[in-house]
Design a protein around this nucleic acid. Sequence first.
DNA 1: GGCGGACTAC
Length: 657
Amino acid sequence: MASFSTAQPLSLPRHPTFSNPNQPTANNDRSSHTISLIDRCSNLRQLKQIHAQMVRTGLFSDPYSASKLFAISALSHFASLDYACKVFDQIPQPNSFTWNTLIRAYASGPDPLRSISVFLDMVSDSRFGPNKYTFPFLIKAAAEVSSLSLGQSLHGMAVKSAVGCDVFVANSLIHCYFSCGDLDSACKVFTTIQEKDVVSWNSMITGFVQKGSPDKALELFKKMESEDVKASHVTMVGVLSACAKTRNLEFGRREDAKRLFDKMEERDNVTWTTMLDGYAILEDYEAAREVLNSMPKKDIVAWNALISAYEQNGKPNEALLVFHELQLQKNIKLNQITLVSTLSACAQVGALELGRWIHSYIKKHGIRLNFYVTSALIHMYSKCGDLEKAREVFSSVERRDVFVWSAMIGGLAMHGCGNEALDMFYKMQEANVKPNGVTFTNVFCACSHSGLVDEAELLFKEMESSYGIVPQEKHYACIVDVLGRSGYLEKAVKFIEAMPIPPSANDGAHVLLSNIYAKSGKWESVSELRKHMRVTGLKKEPGCSSIEIDGTIHEFLSGDNEHPMCEKVYGKLNEVMESLKANGYEPEMSQVLQIIDEEEMKEQSLNLHSEKLAICYGLISTEAPKAIRVIKNLGYSGNGKNHHQPMSARCVLPSSN
DNA sequence: GGCGGACTAC
């Protein structure tokens, strides 16, 4: 049995006599020997050795052998598109299989549309037309780029080429129509398939799950069972995720998911991770953790699922703990998704040191700053108080999408650079990037912090008419905030009363509304609203401030007695308050009007705001002139995920004395 | 001569 070693060159038959018609048996032997070697290659270096030998022995001019080498170079786990192209160019007369292989490689590569150019080359340069193998790859490319028109053209061509009824072609069309959002066409294709196979069903089930109709997915699954089609593990991934996503409709389905999972014959990392994610969606972190622990081979995707579940559900500290645990694992490489989720968790608690560590990790490992990573870095630096670093990241990238621009606008907004944020908003449009709902939230937030009332009102009017974005509740809340903060209380109340959408279960907006009623003396409205909040179970999210000292995050709630050093913290607070009063500080009593809750009233009068506690902890734990950065959890700026994002991050005070 | 489709995490 031939085997590879890194020390020894490969040994292949040496006689360059491939085309000698007198030795057919020897040639066939040589060819099949080489092909078996190709199949057992485990890295590019070995493959290149075989390639070299094949050229030397003349075996490369055999189209069949050459196509085998090419297929491995283009599709194996160590494939290299660059190298594969070179191999392809050396093949004198590529056959249909070879063309299809190249198209396939491009379709699942970073630039799927290149498979379309290869297809055009094939049609014009070779005698081969597309066949039933070609279309699924091309249609996959159309799905990757979500191009409905391309999908439709390919659909038409497939029908003309008489392969429209091929189940592989039809299944790829279902997938394509789903990813282009044309659900009707997907269903139409599905109904026309004569002999549906398990993949046809899977494409429909996962399509519905991904397009937000988990109920339809479960319905289809039942139909599939009634038609005696045996489910595969991919079916289960779709069904498990549908079960998790319908949690609000029927809690019992979670048990369905568990039963399904337990009786599954084939479990791979995807199924495990889906199960993990299902528990995480239900916020049953213990169960999610148990799934991770039971996984035979934990991969980075599973770790990411747990980290991002914590991060997205407002549990950034837990996310960071899991990340630290992940760092201790050997042989698991962090990827861009790990970094994005962790950076977002850093931003939520103000973990600047860890955020910096991740940034240097990115640089050290040459990880590409894609749009997600870039936005996450800008967001993290802004929230953690280092606006300059955020700007640096922003300037360092050549291409910026709407999220990158929005993150920078949001960063400027939370640092009070309203005019600059507006400039950025116009520059973004000069760069031909269309703003989205998140952009507007951040722009309004900038206006709010800088008192740019006219600008905000104008943009709010233009938002739908000129930009085609229907204002959401959070945008209305932003405008109320802009008006309220600038003292236009009557206007704010009128604005709220004229809102076309009712304020829904949004605690922040209720408090805001209540504050506005209170400021304008509408005490009756205040008590009505408070009753409404009590009845509907709404509570104001408690304000929480955090500060990072030597890489550890310390959190403070208002009136907090939990911190081990709280006595010293309160001592410092008294000292600061005395010193402030001695220097002529008088508390702004009109602010008390804003307070709607007795508890808060008490806290306010006793100076127990969480920010003050965090600042005082910073004062006793650091030496001047180190900056003290305090992060607050409440606010309206953000990425649209929720409204509990930290809003301000600033250098508050230099250490005193 | 042989090839292919559907699934998890930002």
